[in-house]
Simulated assay, not measured.
Amino acid sequence: MSTLQAPQGELIKDSDTANFMADVIEASRTVPVIVDFWAPWCGPCKQLTPAIEKVVMAANGRVRLVKINVDENQQLAGQLRVQSIPAVFAFFNGQPVDGFTGALPESQVKQFIDRVSGMGGPSPIEEMVTAGTEALEAGDFQNAEAIFTEVLAADPENLVAFAGVIQGRIKSGDLDAARQMFASLDDDTRSKNEFAGIRAAFQLADQAGDAGDVAELRAKVDADPADSQARFDLALALSGAGRNEDAAAELLHIVRHDRAWNDDGARKQLVTLFDAWGPTHPLTVRTRKSLSSLLFS
């Protein structure tokens, strides 16, 4: 099992009055703890507890569950004023912070646990995804892929991690492998926002292949600076060569001097570049600011 996903025994445990301080109060100082008061004879408990366990396991360490049998721990139940069961309390930083009574549907249980788990900050998987993204942006593609692969071992449905692996292949120049991985996904998944940058990157790669030679296009633009098509093609070729800042500069030139060209084609191409680079990439931020200045000046 991956180190990113705690075994069930660490996330879900039975406890009692004697261990309540350690299992709930002290443990909640580092991660939110859900306490489920139940009894073997309680019908609604038999519906609720499996739903809570399922959602807690899916939270991948952002929250823990402690189960207390009220028949065996009546004094503890009395101290917490448990009047009917199932009764669920959430503890964080040693204090009760939320709760409910009765058997809720799984969707509402998930809403409750999502709310509570958010108090404890990012989960281990979320932290790993952040680390992988930072490695990817820093150009450390091998380390980024290793991190994202570990995330997928623990959470196979993590689309951000899967997209990160594909992005690493694209940025390292292994476009064929990236296309194969992307093609392995179903149509619905490929259309999701997590893959917007990948779709844009493939579009840019295809455009660059048809654009022509950078030196020839530069000469053509120098000979006729008003030739927006040549400048646009130059921008595509520069992008394909990895010269993203130069590509953006050529497209901004078209927006500045020939905004209406090709049905606002230069601005639209800049948006594709932004999608490929990512919304927080420094070049996206700078270029978007320059574009805004041109559009609203």
Rank of each mutant, 00 (worst) to 15 (best):
19 N>P: 03
198 I>C: 13
29 R>P: 14
202 F>C: 01
143 N>L: 07
180 Q>G: 14
107 S>H: 02
161 A>G: 05
125 I>A: 07
74 Q>E: 07
67 K>D: 15
240 G>Y: 08
100 F>E: 06
187 D>Y: 14
18 A>M: 13
95 Q>T: 08
136 L>P: 06
228 S>L: 03
251 L>V: 04
124 P>C: 03
178 A>F: 00
248 A>L: 11
61 G>A: 05
40 P>F: 05
28 S>T: 15
73 N>Q: 00
239 S>K: 06
196 A>P: 00
222 D>C: 15
60 N>G: 13
272 T>G: 07
84 S>L: 10
288 R>C: 04
79 Q>F: 06
91 F>L: 15
117 S>I: 13
103 A>L: 04
260 A>I: 13
186 D>P: 08
15 S>D: 02
4 L>F: 01
125 I>N: 04
97 V>F: 04
6 A>D: 00
241 A>C: 04
64 R>I: 00
52 I>K: 00
215 A>N: 15
88 V>N: 05
237 A>K: 11
25 I>F: 02
206 D>Y: 00
116 V>T: 07
172 S>N: 11
163 A>P: 12
137 E>P: 02
177 A>T: 08
227 D>P: 09
168 G>E: 14
120 G>I: 02
25 I>E: 14
74 Q>S: 14
81 R>C: 14
33 V>L: 04
272 T>W: 13
155 D>K: 00
260 A>D: 14
116 V>Q: 03
152 L>Y: 12
72 E>S: 02
227 D>M: 08
274 F>V: 09
261 W>L: 08
26 E>A: 08
189 T>Y: 03
110 K>Q: 13
129 V>S: 04
128 M>Q: 12
253 H>Y: 11
269 Q>C: 15
210 D>H: 09
170 I>W: 01
160 V>S: 09
216 E>R: 10
163 A>S: 04
199 R>K: 09
284 T>Q: 09
203 Q>D: 12
